[in-house]
Design a protein around this nucleic acid. Structure first.
Lengths: 178, 178
DNA sequence: GAAATTTGTTTAACATGTTAAGTTATCCTG
DNA sequence: CAGGATAACTTAACATGTTAAACAAATTTC
């Protein structure tokens, strides 16, 4: 891809020449990151309005949703499950606690750890949102096909696992590179 | 350093006693949005270090990358291609222009429109990053399998198109719902 | 052809993503 | 048992996501 570039000077012309004179590379819009981004956005666009009507963002919903599956959970574990970085989670928990949607206390055995659980108020909110959310999910499944959807998720999972292996191989350029 | 856990801390039970007393719903971590999010993050985690070494964020890279394919492009069209919302793009363009990586001017025919193009400095930067970027992409393709990757992207594209159709059907609750 | 409406872009405000640094509590080693 | 290294968060700082509002230029209406 390091082909010889035509020495086309900087564009100072209002009406440039033709369009296709630069580095080709892969078709940008068809890159894997873009495909995944657009697909996810297309999915979330379906859910956001409903969540918004209940005063929840996507991340807040993920957290409450994860909390319904457990009695209590530590912050770090919650970050892993809800797939949020620590700082984001820290801010959101502060907000959710202020809104009385969750409850927190420090672990007796280890004062560093925080234990989080959903409040009855939070539980009510979840139960109010869930039906719409489930309906949307069912509609998506129906449209796309349950089997194909499962297959897609399998492929995504395999991709994820494969990339996790790459992590260990290419760990050597924390410095340099320019 | 290994899996040393708290000696008496209550662990999470997938099918635990106290855990499964609330709303069941779908398995949270296996939802489509989470699958897509994790997969995309796994992919981007590969690219981010390299981009960072060149002082670029993912979005800035997307913009410069899109600009290499055209002579000039209008802001709105650039937002569509790079898949960024107007406000985000507006901020990033301001920054990229300050760093002399792009050039801007207003269209003669329509003073509302802004025309953007990459600068020679921006082009140099792209050419510096591209090799590493392409190598990573090649590695991913090789690991996952070119055929399977193409299939995955086809499925993602179909999902995206299918959901786009849903948009028109369920448009009636801009108000109410709470 | 001026007012009303629409369009292209930016600004504002708040929430999250991302990396680095700070805090406090545990663990660990001499 | 004093430090030093770790671990679990939390803060800070900057960039982007997201929605609403502001603005100016173009288009439509009456």
């Amino acid at each position: 891809m390091a082909g010889k570039k035509s020495p086309n000077g900087p564009r100072l012309e209002p009406e440039g020449t033709t369009a296709a004179r630069r580095a080709p590379m892969r078709e940008f819009s068809r890159s894997l990151p873009m495909s995944l981004l657009r697909a996810r956005e297309a999915v979330m666009r379906q859910f956001r309005p409903s969540l918004r009507n209940h005063g929840l963002t996507e991340q807040q919903w993920r957290i409450l949703r994860a909390l319904t599956a457990v009695d209590t959970i530590e912050v770090t574990e919650l970050a892993r499950v809800a797939f949020l970085l620590g700082p984001s989670l820290s801010r959101i928990l502060r907000d959710l606690e202020a809104r009385d949607l969750i409850e927190r206390r420090t672990a007796k055995a280890d004062l560093r750890r925080g234990e989080v659980s959903i409040s009855s108020r939070g539980l009510k909110l979840i139960e109010a949102v869930a039906p719409t959310s489930e309906a949307i999910y069912a509609e998506i499944t129906s449209r796309y096909g349950a089997r194909k959807l499962a297959e897609l998720q399998d492929m995504l999972g395999e991709l994820e696992r494969g990339l996790a292996e790459m992590e260990v191989s290419g760990e050597a350029e924390t410095e340099a590179d320019e």
